[in-house]
Amino acid sequence: MTDKRANTFALQHYTKETPEPPDDLVLWRYLDFPKFLDLLTTRTLKMPRASSMDDGYEGMLGEAAVDARLKSWKLMGEPSYLRQVSWNKELRATSFWRDRTYVSCWNSFPTENAGLWRIYGDDKGLAIKTTWKRLKESFTAGDCVDRVFYGNIEYKNFATDTVASDTFTDQYFSKRVEFAHENEFRLVAHDISRDHSYTDTDPTGLPKFATIDCDLDALIEELIISPRLGAWVTKSVEATCQVFNGDWRIRQSKLYEAPEKSSTKF
C-alpha cells in the first residue's frame, strides 16, 4: 500500500512478502522528557541519521550473507581482483546511504515493557502509546524525504544467516538477533533532496535528522509516566501539555505497584 499525503509525502510498506501491519497494532515510544518537550514544541517527529545510531550494523549485511555473496561470485568464475572491486564498491554505496537514510524506531508490544523502561531511563522517562493507524494518520508532510517505508524488523543471526536483503531499504528492516528484545517497528526514509550532495561521500552539511510534521492529538493515545518517578511529575507533565493544547490521556505507570494484601472480593 502506498499512502499519498501533503507535499507528495507517501507511506509504503517496505515488502510485499509479508502482510500489511494491522491498524490496531499497538506501538510504544520510550523517551526522556527533553525529547518529548521537543516533540511538543516542534510538532515534528525527528528521524536520526542511520550512521549516527548505536548499532554499527544499521543498513549493513551480516557476515554470513557477505561470505555467501563473495562465494557465489567466485563460483561464477569472477576473478579475485574483480570480487574485491565489486565488494568495495558495494561497501561504499552502503556507507553513502547510511549517511542519507533516516530511521524512527518504535516498539510493538500489547502492554508496557519493564525492560524498555530500564533501557530508556525509567528514572526520567515517558512512553507514548499509540497504534499504527494513529501513527500513520498523524503525519502530514516531510522535509528532505518524500517517501517513508514502514514495517516490522526481522531479527537474524548475522553469523549464520546467508540470505541477503534485496535492496538497501530492506537492509534497514533486518537487525541482529541480539536486539530481538526490542520487537521493533520502524520507519525508514532516504534523503532524496536535490539540495543535498549526491556525488560527495562526505556527509558534512547533510541534515542530522529528517523531520515529519505530526498531529500530536492524532498520534498520542496515552502518555504514560515512568513508574519510578514521583506522583508530582504527572501533574507537571499535565501542566506542560496543557500549555501546548495537548488533548490526550496522561497517567503514571503502575508497573511496580504492589498487589493488595487483603481482599474484599467476595
Rank of each mutant, 00 (worst) to 15 (best):
M1I: 15
N7T: 14
F9Y: 06
L11Y: 02
Y14V: 11
E17I: 05
T18W: 13
P22L: 07
D23E: 06
D23R: 00
D24R: 00
L31C: 04
T42K: 10
R43G: 10
L45I: 10
K46H: 14
K46V: 00
M47A: 11
D55K: 07
D55S: 05
G62P: 01
G62M: 01
A64Y: 06
V66I: 08
D67L: 12
S72D: 09
S72I: 06
M76Q: 14
E78K: 08
P79Q: 04
S80C: 03
S86I: 10
W87V: 04
N88E: 10
R92P: 01
A93N: 14
A93F: 10
T94C: 15
D99H: 15
D99W: 09
T101L: 09
T101S: 12
T111G: 00
T111S: 14
N113I: 01
G115R: 05
L116V: 08
R118G: 11
D122M: 11
D123C: 04
D123R: 14
K124V: 13
K124Y: 12
L126A: 02
W132C: 14
S138W: 03
G142A: 03
C144S: 12
V145K: 00
F149N: 02
G151Y: 07
Y155Q: 03
N157Q: 07
A159F: 11
T160S: 03
D161M: 01
S165Q: 08
F168S: 11
D170F: 04
Q171W: 06
Y172Q: 07
F173I: 10
V177S: 10
E182Y: 05
A189D: 07
A189M: 12
H196R: 14
Y198H: 15
P207W: 00
A210S: 07
T211L: 05
I212T: 13
I212M: 11
D213H: 13
L216V: 02
D217M: 01
D217G: 02
D217S: 02
I220T: 00
E221G: 12
E222P: 03
E222F: 03
E222S: 04
I224M: 05
I225T: 08
S226V: 09
P227M: 09
P227V: 06
V233M: 11
S236R: 11
V237L: 14
A239T: 14
C241S: 08
W248T: 00
I250S: 01
R251E: 07
S253M: 11
Y256K: 13
A258F: 06
P259H: 05
E260A: 10
S262F: 15
S262Q: 11
K265Y: 08
F266M: 02
F266Q: 09
